[in-house]
Design a protein around this nucleic acid. Structure first.
Length: 435
RNA sequence: GACCCCUUCGUCUAGCGGUUAGGACACAUCCCUUUCACGGAUGCGACACGAGUUCGAUUCUCGUAGGGGUCGCCA
């Protein structure tokens, strides 16, 4: 039975590196029907905060990385906060003491005596990596105040929680021999490791919490990204599934996931490509799902969508024009207010030719005479109005677009008119004629 | 400084001894078109360097250079 874990330390928000680490663990667990555990490594009281811990849970949930054991969930190997596991660590320390593998510093800190033998890490990504007997000083595993250090608790918990595999950042590879030394001391079998490549900024520096685009909540949740898109893009940073398309849903990514295919070289984060993925997912969203996803951004822009089907249809009509949910309000606001603003330069164009008013009036008359109100009927009416006025359809369309939306770009004019309804369409033309 | 990992278009990558070195994002041009987009087509663009192994290296080996990581009483 496969058991994997994501073990963040709550020193800040969930960032893309952490999310990708969690993602690979999650994929592996889900693919093999294993257990995905969330363990909060809050052993450093001075640096950990509850807000950060909550933020990490929030980010994971948003990404759809649900855990089987851990905070809010429980499980047979809890507690899942290391700050609550002191008794367990004490007993493991006692084992080490009994083995004569520890000694106490003058100030009370406890150190673990390295075996000082060659240690080989068998890694699913990097292959076998052998470290020569170390010359480093023995490592501290407990602070003078009695709290424990990462390397120690990490190993103890991986033993206690029966982890079978560990996917973690490659920054841990150089320390893994220390962990194996501990596993060996405890007479435990180390998990199978997979050290995954780091995510770098576009300038090749390691992406960390404070870098632009690193925070899941701030950059992606609040930035108008869809979780599926970020999930998809992050999968492709360090792993290439053997498929033609790169746009793949969770089920496909899960079934295709192979740890052995994970790259061993670092990857730079490309916000443009991540945004492109988002655009792909945005377009594929059914209207009501799009509305649901866009609601927070509409609300933020002061748009209250009362008529859900119409709002959904309005959003749907511009779905191919945007890449982010946050861009949607600018494209649809005029559907939700009668005092929509007019773009200045288009007002100038409209007034530049006196005959424009006559064209708009012709269109208005044609609309008024319509017994039905569908997109195609509206379209035909516009064509005929243009014909009757002796101009091309293409000359009338922009005028109507501007009258109905105040903008020079948007969905098809017949679509706008249809969604507004006959009455509002006529009112808007009148409002524009009065400019 | 020591040790570890890595090195194909600007970026993400395919390639696992013989390919016109393929795809995606971005960019450029054209087509489509009532706008903006979408979509379609085309183009631009890479094997870090040096030895060796081999009939033949992007591919294997070793160096060099470059990048990243680790060496905490952070995780």
């Amino acid at each position: 039975m496969i058991r994997v874990r994501f073990a963040p330390s709550p020193t800040g928000d969930l960032h893309v590196g952490g999310a990708r680490t969690a993602l690979f663990n999650w994929l592996f667990a889900r693919k093999h029907g294993g257990t995905f555990i969330l363990r909060i490594e809050d052993t450093d009281g001075a640096r950990n905060t509850e807000e950060a811990s909550a933020g990490i849970l929030k980010g994971l949930k948003w990404m759809g990385l649900d855990w089987d054991e851990g905070p809010e969930k429980g499980g047979d190997y809890g507690p899942y906060y290391q700050s609550q596991r002191k008794d367990i660590y004490d007993s493991y320390l006692a084992k080490l003491e009994a083995l004569g593998r520890t000694y106490v510093e003058e100030n009370g800190a406890v150190r673990f005596k390295f075996s000082r033998t060659a240690i080989t890490v068998h890694d699913m990504v990097c292959g076998d990596v052998t470290f020569a007997p170390t010359e480093e000083p023995d490592m501290t595993i407990r602070r003078p105040d009695g709290s424990y250090i990462f390397h120690f608790v990490n190993v103890v918990d991986d033993i206690e929680m029966k982890m079978t595999h560990v996917f973690r950042g490659e920054d841990h590879l150089s320390n893994t021999w220390k962990h194996i030394d501990l596993f060996n001391a405890f007479g435990a079998t180390p998990p199978t490791y997979a050290h995954i490549p780091l995510i770098l900024n576009s300038d090749s520096s390691k992406m960390s919490k404070r870098d632009a685009g690193s925070a899941i909540e701030k950059s992606y949740m609040n930035g108008g990204f869809l979780p599926d898109a970020v999930f998809n893009y992050l999968c492709l940073l360090g792993w290439t599934p053997r498929t033609d398309s790169e746009v793949l849903d969770r089920a496909t990514l899960t079934s295709l996931f192979e740890p052995g295919e994970i790259h061993s070289s670092n990857a730079r984060f490309d916000m443009q490509k991540c945004t492109w993925f988002n655009a792909q997912y945005l377009r594929a969203l059914p209207p009501l799902d799009l509305l649901k996803a866009a609601q927070p951004f509409l609300l933020q822009a002061g748009i209250i969508a009362i008529d859900e089907p119409v709002a959904a249809a309005a959003l749907h009509s511009v779905r191919e024009k945007v890449s982010l949910l946050s861009e949607l309000p600018d494209w649809v606001h005029y559907f939700f207010r009668e005092d929509y603003p007019y773009e200045d330069e288009v007002v100038a164009k409209l007034k530049a030719k006196p005959e424009n008013s006559a064209l708009l009036e012709a269109a208005m008359a044609a609309f008024a005479a319509l017994p039905d109100w569908t997109e195609s009927v509206v379209h035909t009416a516009i064509e005929e109005a243009a014909k009757g006025a002796g101009v091309k359809t293409g000359a009338l369309m922009p005028l109507l677009r501007f009258a109905l939306s105040g903008q020079s770009r948007g969905p098809g004019v017949n679509t706008i008119a249809f969604l507004l309804g006959k009455e509002r369409t006529i009112e808007r033309i009148q409002r524009t004629l009065a400019l």
